[in-house]
């Protein structure tokens, strides 16, 4: 309808251990004006040295899909729980990989 809103986003990294190493997966969580009644919209924010690995939980735009988001219920669901789910899910299926270095 042409209206605009100022939204708040939280940008940071999620610590994930994969194959014995810990990685800091860059993510951005958008809090809508209806938050916390609705879940945040979450994206992986790859740096230029990374590429998105699309899969069950991440699409080509880096948008994150999780049952936790889909079944979000206030007040049981919160950002702390969401990030814990991300740590587990991304530990099994990292959403980003580093680009092969061009020699």
């Amino acid at each position: 309808d042409g209206s605009t809103k100022d939204l708040m986003s939280l940008t940071g990294t999620v610590p994930v251990s994969y194959r014995g190493n810990t990685y800091n997966i860059p993510v951005c969580l958008w809090l809508l004006d209806v938050y916390p009644y609705n879940p945040p919209i979450c994206f992986v924010k790859p740096t230029s040295a990374m590429m998105i690995k699309t899969g069950k939980h991440v699409d080509a735009n880096g948008k994150i899909y999780l049952p936790y988001l889909h079944e979000w219920k206030h007040p049981q669901s919160d950002l702390y729980g969401l990030i814990q789910v991300m740590v587990v899910v991304f530990g099994e299926e990292p959403p980003v990989f580093s680009r092969p270095q061009v020699q």
């Binding site: 940071g12 800091n24 997966i25 980003v96 990989f97 580093s98």
Partner: peptide
């Protein structure tokens, strides 16, 4: 200081 983003190296499937 927030940690530097990092990602695993792709494993050749």
């Amino acid at each position: 200081k927030s940690p530097t983003p990092s990602a695993p190296v792709p494993v050749a499937e």
